[in-house]
Nucleic acid binder design. Structure first.
Lengths: 257, 257
DNA sequence: CGTTATCTTGACGTACATCAAATGTCGTGG
DNA sequence: CCACGACATTTGATGTACGTCAAGATAACG
């Protein structure tokens, strides 16, 4: 992880693997992710206050920047790329609890220790805040705290939906739900794209859906055979029949063939 | 659901089945659940403010007081009894997302619509707040909002732990995890009881763990046969070997027999 | 002390896991 | 440009943990 703003701090350099700091002037004002992130709670005039606390960091693919069980010292706001969040069992079984995309605020699901690890899937850009210093901002801007509570509420809704998926849906229903979720745009108001790119491997998808890689693969090819989706390449998905895919994801009875 | 404080409101009576209002004087000051609930964020002198907003309600066993998909109008604070929170698929498959015990604050996992239904398992006592009116309290007492955020963070941690359970643990590991969670006292500082009562049926446990009632039953009897637990009656559990139960729940390799 | 719901136990089935191998994809260097 | 190797994905054959179906056994209750 390399710090690229606002000034190279020693501790940031220490954490970074190949730290090569670059200064980004006024990062918050030019942030692509701002409109979809908790930072939208602040007005332009207050944004510089946030910018002084934020360090823009770049995380290389495969690099872990939050470690399950460790003491949390920072909050992160994802501004670019995709992050996998996961928990491990002692024998290596892995459950991915979510994929964080731009706008996702990381660091809420935390007590004394981090509840999960976070690892960059692609090159990821995050905005890092010291927990103690962000505390001060929260005290000054109640709107920000309220936005954070809303963000936590959304995550809770998503977590419960995922519990339903993991506990009660079939493999087909899980994959359909997953594909539709991946097809969702960052802003709810934007139309869902018919074609999109999967930044994660089949192994990631399997560990997210509580399945094996083989079952995910077989299920995808079956959805392709049935013309619900097309797969121009393993990572490219085209939704051909959104209606049936949604019915499947929602757990409606499948029509007999 | 019957309103028993502070004054019988018409809309409360409308919602209640056999509404027979009773006035409870100064409910918050004498609340058993206060020390374990979000209300502990308020000091004694501010508590009366909360009390004017709170309606103490009693919910009969089996009664649903939050309906998935409906527009949320209230927050609830559980002060007595146990509540099951669940989501349904159209064909009736059910996933219980959690059991709410005294101190649990309900109504965070909500966007436009309730993310889950809530049903009393036993006779339940809840403290009901109108969402709009609680909003005003939050503006006046930032400590309360902060406590709510902490509560949401705890729920998120629990939700992720449950995703790990549902996605990657075996039936044995799930049941062991469940029993240990049920053995946890309301306050983290209190010692865990060696013997406790399960307020829910095997069906509830199955729908919580993503299993069937038969698998839950078989797994419990196997744990009993192996002397990890005792079952004086189906609803009474005695933890005999906490160490092995914890190893099982944590997903450690089981010793070969 | 029947009646009914809940729980337990047994026999059998299946959706998904496991094991194994072929195929496809992509970066690298000749 | 193409051959090569490393790795991801797909496909096939087989196994199994848990689900389903079906009785009993217990407990709860008027």
């Amino acid at each position: 992880m390399r710090s690229i703003s606002p000034a190279p701090r020693p501790q940031a350099a220490a954490l970074a693997s190949g730290a090569a700091p670059l200064v980004v002037p006024d990062p918050c004002a030019h942030c692509d992710a701002r409109s979809v992130s908790v930072c939208s709670a602040l007005e332009d005039k207050d944004l510089h206050r946030l910018a002084t606390l934020a360090e823009v960091m770049e995380v290389a693919p495969g690099e872990t920047f939050i470690e399950e069980g460790e003491t949390p010292e920072h909050f992160f706001n994802v501004t670019g790329g995709t992050v996998r969040l996961y928990k491990l069992l002692p024998d290596g079984r892995r459950q991915i609890t979510g994929f964080a995309r731009p706008g996702h605020f990381l660091g809420l699901a935390v007590g004394e220790a981090n509840a999960f690890s976070a690892e960059a899937l692609e090159t990821v850009r995050v905005c890092r805040f010291s927990r103690s210093r962000l505390r001060a901002v929260l005290d000054d801007f109640p709107a920000f705290e309220r936005r954070l509570l809303r963000s936590a509420a959304n995550e809770l809704v998503a977590a419960q939906e995922q519990m339903l998926l993991l506990g009660r849906k079939t493999a087909r229903e899980r994959v359909a739900s997953f594909l539709l979720a991946q097809a969702r745009p960052l802003r709810a108001c934007d139309p869902p794209p018919g074609r999109f790119h999967l930044p994660m491997t089949r192994t990631d998808i399997a560990d997210y859906l509580g399945l094996t890689i083989e079952t995910v693969s077989r299920t995808m090819t079956r959805l392709r055979t049935e013309k619900l989706i097309a797969l121009p390449s393993p990572a490219e998905v085209v939704v051909l029949d959104r209606g049936r895919l949604e019915a499947l994801a929602g757990g409606f009875e499948e029509e007999r063939i």
